[in-house]
Structures are given as structure tokens and as C-alpha cells.
Amino acid sequence: MDSPARHGRYPWSPLPERPLYDWPGGRRLAVYVGLNLEVFDFGDGLGAELAPGGGDPDVLNYSWRDWGNRVGAWRLLETLDALGLPTSVIANGRVLTECPGLVEAFLARGDELVGHGRTNAERQADLTEDDERALVAEATAALTTAAGRAPAGWLGPWISESRVTPDLLAEAGYGYLLDWAHDDQPTWLTTRDGGRILSVPYPQELNDIPAVVSRQVSGQDFADMVVATFDEMLEQSRSAPLVMGIAVHPYVVGHPHRLRPLRAALAHVAAHRDDVWLTTAGAIAEHAAPVTP
């Protein structure tokens, strides 16, 4: 019998057997909001579908997604401002040219900028190694120009990786990635040159695309998931330092009937700011790197 295929990126490590450490201020639960700012090709390529579109050009779903950048993102920005929540802005490089002023509005708050490919109309796994390297370089250059410094973290469009994605990211100078949902703590992934890149937990359950678009839960249900996850992880963090991410897309949760319950859920989280570390994915990576075996 053949051995099963292995990725070789990280070893087996049960959570209860790991060393204990604290987040800043002696806290044990780190919480961040990952806000995705994405653009899509009109009449071509990939794109989330909230309703059957009926072929390309898919005006229904394209315009629904575009609404997120024109309206929904600004409503979320107001919500984050009102609650005093920092954000990891996970942005396609071409958002900068197609939606001028949008990324800049979040950077003015001091938010972190995370690389997210060129557009969400393509997947890294579909590219050759040279083409994927070029994608990383193009997106990195655009985001570096906007932020004045290179992004430290990366999330692949559609959370899609080739077999060499972590290697290419490490070679391009990235310190962490968000693609792997295998743990509630940061973990190291090995790379082909004998180095490593840190994996920071990014949610697939507490993520509005799988929840609302794929599983078709309501806005209230998604907000209830945020509260239940937070309350449970706060209790669990008594025995281990944990990371809770909340992944949102303006074209999904920016709509009024989803935004209102989400705002209440985020207010519940923000009300515990003395008990948890409200932060960014980049700050989590920076703090965890020296203490993660």
C-alpha cells in the first residue's frame, strides 16, 4: 500500500503539549479582523456568486461585488472606527488603481496592509512557478508603494496555493501567510531553502464567504457565530494562547441587513478589550515568531 501524500510543511503537534506564552498585557486571546478588499474582471475569470448569474458577462454578480468597494467597505470603515477596532486590510494590488482612495482610507487609520494577489479573478494554483512569482512581485510592488513599506503578510486569492507558494513568499521577503487553517496558534511552515515562514490562523468557519455564500446562513446567524466563537475561545484561552480571526468581505457583510447584527457582534468583542488583545495579523506574527518553536 502506497504511503499517503504529505505536504511536508509542518509536523504533528497536539495543542495541549505545546509551551505556554502570553500575548501582550498577559492576555491569552488575540483577535483580529481580516477585511478583504477585492476586484474582479468583468465578463471573465473567477468571482463569488450570490445568485445564479446566467453566463458572462455576469452583470448581476459582478455589480454585487463592485457594490462592496463603492458602498459596503465605507460602512465597515465607519463601524470599525466607532468601535475602535484595528484591521488587517487584505487587498488585491489592483484595488489601488480601480478604487482610488479606498485602501488609503484604511491606511489613514493605521491599519495593516496584507498582500492578496492582483485580483480575485485568478488563482495562484493555476499558474506556472514563474508566473506565480511575477504575480507576487506585481502585487507586492503596488502595495509597497501605497503603504510606504512592503507588506509582511499574504493571503492567496481564493486561498489558493501551488506546491511552491510558501517558498516563493519567503523568497520575496514575506514573514507570514494566512492560507492555512490548520491551527488556532501561529505555526512555522518549512520552505525549500531550509528556511521557514510563519502561518497565522485565518478562519474558514468564521468567514462570511463560506458561511453566507456557500452555506447560505443569515446575517444574524453569522453574527451569532462571531459571538459564540469569541465567548468559547475566551474560555479556552485560559489553558493556551489562541488566535481568533474574523474574515469579512464588504460585498457580503456590508449590506445593511448583515451589517447591523455584525456591528452588534463586534461591539460584544470590543467590550472585552481589557481581557483580550485586539490587534492585527501582522502584530500577532511579530509577537509569536520569537516564542513559536
Rank of each mutant, 00 (worst) to 15 (best):
H116E: 00
A247P: 00
Q185L: 12
V213H: 04
L169M: 07
W67Y: 15
D179Q: 01
P57Q: 12
T292G: 06
R238T: 11
W277F: 12
M1D: 14
L37T: 09
V71F: 11
Q216E: 14
R215M: 08
Q204A: 11
G282M: 12
P166T: 07
E38C: 07
H249Q: 06
E112C: 09
P4S: 13
G115V: 03
T279L: 12
L206Y: 05
D130Q: 14
D66T: 05
R149P: 08
L198C: 08
T187R: 15
I90L: 11
D274W: 06
L76V: 05
Q216W: 08
G254C: 02
G101I: 04
A211R: 01
R273K: 11
R196L: 06
D2L: 14
L242C: 05
T128A: 07
A152E: 15
I246C: 12
L113V: 04
G194C: 07
S218L: 10
G115H: 14
N36K: 01
L37H: 08
H255P: 01
R149W: 13
T128P: 10
T280I: 01
P16R: 01
D81F: 03
R260M: 11
Q185I: 12
A281S: 15
W180Y: 10
A264K: 12
V164Q: 04
P14T: 09
L198F: 08
A146V: 05
T128S: 15
S3Q: 15
A51I: 10
W23V: 02
V164G: 06
D275Q: 12
L155S: 14
R215C: 07
R260D: 15
A146T: 02
R263Q: 12
L262A: 05
D275C: 02
A82R: 15
A150E: 08
W154G: 03
T145L: 12
I246T: 04
P241I: 02
R133S: 14
D208T: 06
G25I: 07
N120K: 04
P57I: 10
E171A: 15
F42M: 04
A30Q: 02
V59Q: 13
G245R: 00
E235I: 09
L206C: 08
E129D: 14
V164R: 12
G84K: 05
A73S: 14
S218H: 06
A211V: 03
V213N: 13
P151V: 08
L177D: 00
L20R: 15
M233R: 14
E232M: 07
R94I: 06
P24K: 03
P86I: 05
R133Y: 05
L168Q: 14
T97L: 10
G245C: 08
E205K: 07
G156Y: 01
V243Q: 03
L206E: 14
N69F: 05
E78K: 13
T144K: 04
R6W: 07
G117D: 03
D58Y: 05
